[in-house]
Design a protein around this nucleic acid. Structure first.
Lengths: 194, 194
DNA sequence: TTATAAAATTGATCCGGGTTAAGAAGCAGC
DNA sequence: GCTGCTTCTTAACCCGGATCAATTTTATAA
């Protein structure tokens, strides 16, 4: 049943909970398994959960016409959500899809709001989540603004080797902001230099 | 002395404060005037304030070698800060410079932390700020990831006409992620079509 | 294992942004 | 006003990524 070691690990990097607070947290979590190719969130729906990934990994992407734009990958031991949609209660423009069979812990919007009202430590938790996501996205933003696609790919190799190792190239290309063809050429250039 | 109507306006969009809580907030704010060209934050310093802009506007940019990359513009009636640096207590990589003579209200890191500990409503305030910034940055991210520079410029005209009206083109170009020359060509193309 | 589809690579061509350099237009200070 | 500096524009050339199309390689299923 309840193995919450991974999520406790994650949260402990930011907050100190008492055993009581942990328990109070964990009764709110819903465990769920998701098969490869199934969706955690579909564009058009309001994102209703903050999701902790126990196993598997997810891809967050936006669909414009036929074209997919990959916003991010989220691996086990981390949260995944469309937090902007979750917070603003507006329909999401993103899809979140399982890239492998996965197991997640869902934290429901209403549960979280109730918890916010009841315990100050939860407000802190909410801040933590928002700030954690923010720091990540600011960094991503900088990449997109000042690096070339080639530099972004190199940075991805350095910062998130797990992505390179696990994710099909066409999604990596889309994450880097280019076509698979262009990524292929970048990789070729690299292998020649090296 | 204390005219806090603008900041009250802003916060009221997200939170309900009692008059007492407003007062408790306002004693923490430090009013400051900043001359055109002066810095609110310099790269390398830890960002120590969340700053509300009463008058004037600011440019947030990153310097790499000789090249400036404009991350954002912040106008009166809004906050400006490097929240990632503020939160993580890491040196900022951004500069924040006044584009006109400005007046701001500074909220100090320590003041905010103390307030966090004391009042739950402040935790909520912290969440609010983080979430507000997050929503904005996610949107910016999408622009950079799936729009062309030309589309980004058009979107900027539509969404933030104030930027187009107030900001010299070379900074707009840098915000859109291109050189002034390229922006000039885009504008020419537009004027021909129109 | 083979058959089929999906992913990745390669090539040819096009196009928009970068770069460099020059000139035009705006603006600040005198 | 005039001077000098910054901003903005225009032009010419280069280069990397997009696109279209074909091929090879790898996964997946029967």
């Amino acid at each position: 049943m309840g193995d919450f070691s991974a999520i406790r690990n994650f949260i402990s990097r930011f907050l100190t909970f008492t055993e009581e607070e942990w328990k109070a947290h964990e009764v709110l979590l819903v465990r769920k398994t998701i098969k490869k190719g199934e969706f955690l969130l579909k564009a058009g729906d309001v994102c209703n959960h903050v999701t902790f990934i126990n196993k598997g990994y997810f891809r967050v992407y936006h669909l414009i016409g036929e074209q997919e734009f990959t916003a991010n990958f989220a691996f086990d031991g981390n949260y995944v959500t469309d937090y902007a949609s979750f917070v603003s209660r507006q329909p999401s423009v993103d899809n979140i899809v399982a890239m492998e069979d996965a197991e997640v812990l869902l934290l429901d919007y209403d549960s979280l709001q109730t918890a916010y009202e009841r315990y100050p430590v939860w407000q802190k938790f909410g801040r933590m989540i928002a700030e954690y996501i923010l720091i990540f996205i600011v960094e991503r933003n900088r990449s997109l603004l000042f690096l070339t696609p080639e530099e972004r790919y190199l940075k991805l190799m350095k910062d998130r080797p797990k992505v390179i190792a696990s994710v099909p190239l066409k999604y990596i290309a889309s994450y880097v902001g280019i076509t698979p063809e262009a990524l292929s050429r970048i990789r070729k250039r690299m292998s020649i230099k090296a």
